[in-house]
Computed example of a mutant assay.
Amino acid sequence: MPSKSHSFLDPSTVLLLTLPPLFWAGNAVVGRLMVGQIPPMALSFYRWLFALLLALLIVGPDLWRNRAVLRSKWKSLAVMGILGVGSYNSLQYVALETTTPLNVSLITSSAPVFILLIGGAFYKQTVGRAQWIGAMLSIAGVALVVAKGDLAHLTALHYAPGDLIMLVAVFLWAIYTWELRQRPLGLAPMTSLAAQMIWGVLSILPFMLAERWIGGQTTHWGGPVWLALAYVAVLPSLLAYWCWGSAVGKVGAQIPSYFGNLAPLFAALLSWLFLGETIHWYHLWAALLIFAGIHVALNARQQPVPLEQEL
């Protein structure tokens, strides 16, 4: 597929590409703010349940018209929904219990390289020398975040649990992205997302119930929780997805991937404003390594892999 020209980046397209990483960074900050207010599985469940209800108002008729496709492709939709909606987002909220929104965003920024490596390992995609160099740079950036700037932490296994959980989440997201690419369903993007949300919500439900009835974690319902749910259900879910899909339709997949990497910068700013968290030197170096790795890896590809970002 030929690369689209940068001339397509008019102000409206730039806005479409800038809003999603801002909303996704806000999602990480909200998840951190809600620690102690609503358990992570409950936050994930209600986020996607409310997003699904809103999506059904828009694409419900289209889902009904395509019910034969939904029945025939239910296994693919189930895998995508469990990986992309259920697992990734739930693990992100669990990670935020013990790590920061900035660390989450930086680790998430390595997703394009995970996608590249998994494509080479499991989906018969060729990975050249430049891709390996890019992968090593980004992995070094992730290691710097996990080690908190001290390599002794790596050898002593002094990891923040949330950082390791987020690495697992990004790995599952990379598999989801390849499944999304390898199994075209013939559905409109929002219709496909709504169908995946159904499976995602169903997959989160038993863990949310276990969190409540076995773990004894409860939700403190009130204004802050309702505002948080309204935010995560609308902005980083439906609106961010619509903006991203519209922009990719204009400029292709490669240019948006760079805008997606604005998320750590927005996360740092929002964490400083709302959480009072400090930005350390190793965050800046990690960001440079991750972005350099993605730049090397992507620019070496003749046909870039569609790098779908967080739903």
Rank of each mutant, 00 (worst) to 15 (best):
F23M: 05
L180C: 07
L185S: 11
R301F: 12
V79S: 14
I139Y: 02
V35K: 05
I38A: 15
S87V: 13
Y159N: 13
V201L: 03
W272G: 15
L102E: 00
T13S: 12
T18F: 08
E277S: 01
Q131D: 00
V145K: 05
A147R: 00
W244E: 08
L270H: 02
M41N: 13
G186H: 08
S192A: 15
H283N: 09
G222E: 09
Q303V: 14
L275C: 10
M80N: 14
A240L: 09
I38L: 14
L154M: 04
P40Y: 11
S105A: 14
V59A: 06
T108F: 06
Y258H: 12
V69M: 09
K124V: 10
L56F: 07
P189H: 11
P112V: 02
A174N: 06
V104S: 10
P20F: 00
L9P: 07
K75W: 10
H280K: 13
Y159E: 08
G141V: 10
R129P: 07
G293L: 06
L157M: 14
C243W: 07
W199G: 04
L205Q: 07
V35W: 09
L288A: 15
W178I: 08
W178Y: 13
Y88M: 10
Y123K: 01
L157F: 15
H295C: 02
W272N: 08
W24E: 01
L180W: 14
N103M: 13
R32C: 03
V94T: 01
W178Q: 15
F50W: 11
F291N: 09
T155P: 01
L298A: 12
A188K: 15
G249P: 11
L229V: 01
S203G: 12
V234C: 14
N103K: 12
V146A: 14
P264E: 00
P184M: 05
I175S: 09
L63K: 11
I107C: 08
W242Q: 14
I279Y: 00
F23Q: 05
W24T: 06
T18V: 13
I255G: 04
T219H: 05
E277Q: 14
N299T: 15
L77Q: 00
Y88I: 05
L185T: 10
I118K: 00
N27R: 02
L151P: 02
A156G: 07
S105P: 01
T100M: 07
S87N: 04
L63I: 10
S90M: 03
E277M: 04
S138G: 13
